[in-house]
Write a protein that binds this DNA or RNA. Structure first.
Length: 914
RNA sequence: GGGCGAAUAGCUCAAUUGGUAGAGCACUGCCCUUACAAGGCAGGGGUUACAGGUUCGAGACCUGUUUCGCCCACCA
């Protein structure tokens, strides 16, 4: 336990009004307060400028992870704009997350040994709804714990009635414009999820495999063969041709002849196609139009038959004859075995294969021939491309532009139908009589074509990203012409991870432009991905997940928020560790204690506030000796200067989405300037008896403290709000206080130079003390030798100097003659010599070492500078400003060197004489 | 195969239009000094991945090379 002196007899008494920092106690309180008082609510009737961000809706299945916690960037932006007087709206919502949710619920069913088919579509959907009600709200609760100022009254959900209407409306309109169509073609198929996937939902992975060389007998002479190379021998059962390059001399003669497909005994042609690479494998390739994307295209060019040999679970079907019922893997083994026994397997080579995996379940994706719905992307992509090209949307960091353009310029049509149950049902009905399709916004009573009433709806649902693409306007009530749309569309910023730039952001831009004729947002801020401290992705399987809620519990939401914001740079990833958060929890504690001390200083006498003028600046100028503040003492002019510089840079960094910089700026200012210097300077004032100085300090401290709390609010709303209410005279909550504005008239540039001198003097003493291991409790005696002007300056600030440097007494001398009498440690700074009497304090050897060390440093620096100054071309070609700086520095170093050398000499003498 | 990004202190990252590298954490020493030991004060630590080039001057600009990460593309 720490002992505390009884200091009741000291002039200043601490009132200890604040308890210790305890985030758990304050955070929940303010979260409730803000929400209950309605500070998060936006209105459509406000005359203020609007600022709107739509929260990227978390999946209903999800629980909060660090990616969600990074949305603190949005909260910071919203709070910052709210304080600037904007009508802010941050729209919360959740995503039904079609395939992900269905998988989770199916997994749950599977643990009871059931499949969704056992329940049937209706019962299964009820089950999903139940699941959603149970888990969907959890993630929203969790967002509250981070202090997110979302307008909960406008909660959106991609499956709610209004949103579903928007989805159907978009589908029907695009269909009418022929931008949505139905097509029979090869698509990516997940045999485990048993659904079609879009190109984006397929991940690629390189795996070691083989390249098998198969011998196909020629029809004309079955003792002769053509060899084909393949990575998927099992698909040979569906081969409908062999292709060679038209100008390949090896095979030229064979073009147009036929081979007998082994195992199936089918006759198939040898065709010529430019796409065949002569150098790869044998130069001849088997063509399987139903199971390979290239082969599919080639098949179309040559009018080949498409033979599907797999069913929807990727097991062999009736077209595979005796192989029917086998899995892909079993079939491959069997085919190879039989070819080998027939001596038709020429050889196998090691081969690296790029395989396709389902994003959701990691199963190997099968190219599958089927009828699906597609969105024609080229016209939409063109709109999106133009908007970004013309800077109507700015992507930050801007290096993503290239990636974005590459994607929209090479876009393929988007397969949007999914053979799932959970999601928006496709609004298309098929006629039993005439087989035609009826697409409508509401359930049609009869076929649009033959008027018959035997209609059945398409069983499929839409890709979950189809609905997400409407997020910026469907959340505001579209297709109704709502006030919300008028006020809050386009949104101001969209912040999300770059992993869903194509999935979501690009598609929102397209749909926004298509249906609202305006970009959906002005800025896209792509935040970095959060990795663990080793740089690995956080995942349950690696066991390296840091749960934001645990962190919040252990360190407080504010510490986590500040940590995330300060780690956020324009890089692609950030590494997060608990140690990092712990560091910022310490910062919160520092802020708390600094405020506690400040409040004690402020509290001792309430400020005389002119009636009806509650604003701190008015107060400040009302009490100041001179209205422009230039009569304030140095430390106050200095802290005001630094404060307003900080306000400026925080503001600028925010505007440029440099959150890490703004956090860093604040951290440095608060800890190393406000706490370490300003508050320390105020101590002698408040412990003293000069009432006028106290009053002056109170006025400035009040100004600085309030502005610090305001600056902090977007980053750490809870602690700043709590402290704000402890500042005497504050009535309105901080959340709606105006954000500070940098004031030029409070910048006193001379104060920066003067403080430099004063700080240097104090640091010089501390350095001597530290290096000589002199305890802080030992008061020192100092001698200063300097110019008349400097002497005058230092004499003015003697009290502060002596207090902070723990000096008992200071003597000013005109020259260094005094040194002869005693042993001194010596330092030189900014044209001033400082001597600390070491008589009886240290052994001489240590001081000698210290001096030798600094002499070495000076020598090194001097050498560097001189080598440049001796370089003629440097002197003649470098700008005069730079050369002058070097010259000045060299002079300074020279004089410092002389003094250090002399001091060292003197020590040697002392050693000898003692 | 194409594109993007990264490489700086032991670790994580900074470094404004080129002016001679700086924080946090970790480390070492001293210290319960009347806000804070979740603290204070002081200190050590770098051939800026490598090789060239431009320049008076390069962590930054150019050209290669190496290593790592990511995205896009299905040479079967």
């Amino acid at each position: 336990m720490r002992l505390r002196d009884n200091f009741s007899d000291v002039g200043y008494k601490l009132s200890m009004q604040l308890p210790d920092y305890n985030p758990a106690q304050i955070e929940l309180k303010w979260q409730k307060f803000w929400e209950e008082k309605g500070y998060f609510k936006a209105t459509t009737s406000s005359k203020k400028k609007s600022y709107c961000i739509a929260l990227p809706p978390p999946n209903v299945t999800g629980s909060l992870h660090m990616g969600h916690a990074l949305y603190v960037i949005q909260d910071a932006l919203i709070r910052w704009k709210r304080m600037q007087g904007f009508n802010t709206l941050w729209i919360p919502g959740i995503d039904h997350a079609g395939i992900a949710t269905q998988n989770v619920v199916e997994k749950e069913l599977a643990s009871d040994g059931k499949s969704r088919h056992d329940l049937g579509r209706v019962e299964f959907l009820k089950r999903v709804e139940k699941w959603k009600d149970k888990h969907g709200s959890r993630i929203l609760e969790q967002l509250r714990y981070l202090g997110f100022s979302l307008d909960w009254s406008r909660l959106s959900y991609t499956m709610d009635e209004i949103f579903s209407k928007a989805v159907v409306e978009v589908f029907v309109r695009l269909y009418k414009e022929k931008l949505i169509y139905r097509g029979h073609r090869l698509i990516n198929w997940c045999p485990r999820c048993r659904t079609a996937l879009s190109d984006l939902e397929v991940e690629h992975e390189e795996r070691k495999s083989k390249l098998w060389h198969l011998k196909y007998p020629l029809k004309a002479n079955t003792f002769q063969y053509i060899t084909v190379a393949t990575t998927r021998p099992e698909t040979m059962l569906g081969d409908t041709a062999v292709a060679v390059h038209p100008r390949d001399p090896r095979y030229k003669k064979l073009i147009g002849t036929k081979i007998i497909l082994p195992l199936m005994q089918r006759e198939i042609p040898i065709i010529a196609d430019e796409k065949v690479e002569r150098d790869f494998g044998s130069g001849a390739v088997k063509v399987t139009p139903a199971h390979d994307f290239n082969d599919f295209e080639m098949g179309l060019r040559h009018g080949l038959q498409q033979i599907s040999i797999f069913n929807d679970a990727a097991c062999l079907n009736e077209n595979a004859g005796p192989y029917q019922g086998l899995t892909r893997e079993e079939c491959r083994l069997k085919v190879l075995e039989e070819l080998k026994s027939k001596n038709l397997l020429e050889k196998e080579e090691d081969h690296l294969l790029n395989i396709s995996l389902c994003q959701r379940c990691q199963s190997v994706v099968e190219p599958h021939l089927s009828t699906q719905w597609f969105v024609s992307m080229k016209p939409l992509a063109k709109l999106a491309r133009e908007a970004v090209k013309l800077r109507k949307i700015k992507i930050i960091p801007s290096h993503w532009d290239k990636t974005f353009f590459h994607w929209v310029e090479n876009i393929q049509d988007w397969c949007i139908s999914r053979q799932l149950w959970w999601g928006h049902r496709i609004p298309a009905w098929y006629c039993d009589d005439c087989n035609s399709v009826t697409v409508a916004t509401s359930i049609p009573t009869q076929c649009f074509h033959c008027k018959c009433e035997k209609l059945s709806q398409d069983p499929d649902v839409l890709d979950t990203w189809f609905s997400s693409a409407l997020w910026p306007f469907a959340t505001l009530g579209w297709p109704q012409k709502t006030k919300e749309l008028k006020v809050f569309y386009p949104n101001s910023v969209l912040e999300t991870g770059h992993d869903i730039l194509f999935f979501w952001v690009a598609r929102m831009i397209m749909m926004g432009l298509k249906f609202m004729k305006k970009v959906p947002f002005a800025y896209v801020y792509l935040h970095p991905l959060i990795l663990d401290k080793e740089g690995r992705k956080m995942s349950k399987s690696s066991g390296n997940v840091i749960d934001p809620l645990d962190v919040t519990k252990d360190y407080g939401a504010d510490a986590l928020r500040f940590a995330l914001l300060s780690l956020t740079s324009h890089a692609r990833s950030i590494r997060l560790s608990l140690e990092e958060v712990g560091g910022y929890r310490n910062f919160m504690n520092k802020i708390w204690n600094a405020a506690k001390l400040s409040l004690n200083f402020l509290d001792s006498m309430s400020l005389r506030v002119p009636k009806g003028r509650g604003n701190s600046n008015v107060r400040f100028f009302g009490l100041c000796p001179l209205n422009d503040g230039s009569d304030l003492s140095l430390i106050h002019r200095w802290i005001l200067t630094r404060l307003h510089q900080t306000i400026h840079s925080v503001q600028k960094a925010f505007e440029e989405f440099r959150f890490g910089d703004s956090a860093h700026e604040l951290y440095q200012f608060i800890w190393y300037e406000f706490c370490d210097w300003y508050l320390e300077f105020l101590k002698p004032v408040f412990y003293g008896t000069d009432e006028e100085a106290k009053m002056e300090s109170r006025v400035v401290l009040d100004h600085v403290l309030r502005n610090i709390l305001k600056l902090l609010h977007p980053f750490v709303p809870h602690i700043s709000e709590e402290l704000w209410h402890s500042v005497p005279g504050n009535k309105m909550p901080l959340i709606v206080e105006p954000f500070p504005k940098a004031q030029k008239k409070l910048l006193f540039s001379s104060s920066l130079r003067d403080m430099e001198v004063l700080k240097s003097a104090i640091l010089a003493v501390r350095n001597i003390r530290g290096e000589n291991n002199i305890s802080p409790s030992t008061k020192l005696n100092i001698v200063l030798v300097c110019s008349k002007k400097r002497r005058h300056f230092l004499k003015c600030h003697l009290k502060e100097f002596e207090f902070l440097a723990r000096v008992a007494g200071t003597i000013f001398e005109k020259n260094q003659d005094f040194k002869k009498r005693k042993l001194y440690a010596q330092a030189h700074f900014l044209g001033t010599d400082l001597f600390v009497s070491l008589e009886g304090l240290v052994n001489i050897e240590e001081e000698r070492l210290r001096l030798a060390k600094s002499l070495e440093k000076v020598d090194q620096e001097l050498m560097q500078i001189n080598s440049r100054l001796n370089n003629e071309s440097f002197v003649s070609k470098a700008p005069k400003r730079i050369v002058d700086e070097h010259k000045q520095k060299a002079e300074e170093l020279m004089s410092k060197k002389e003094k250090l050398t002399a001091a060292l000499e003197k020590l040697k003498v002392s050693v000898l004489s003692s």
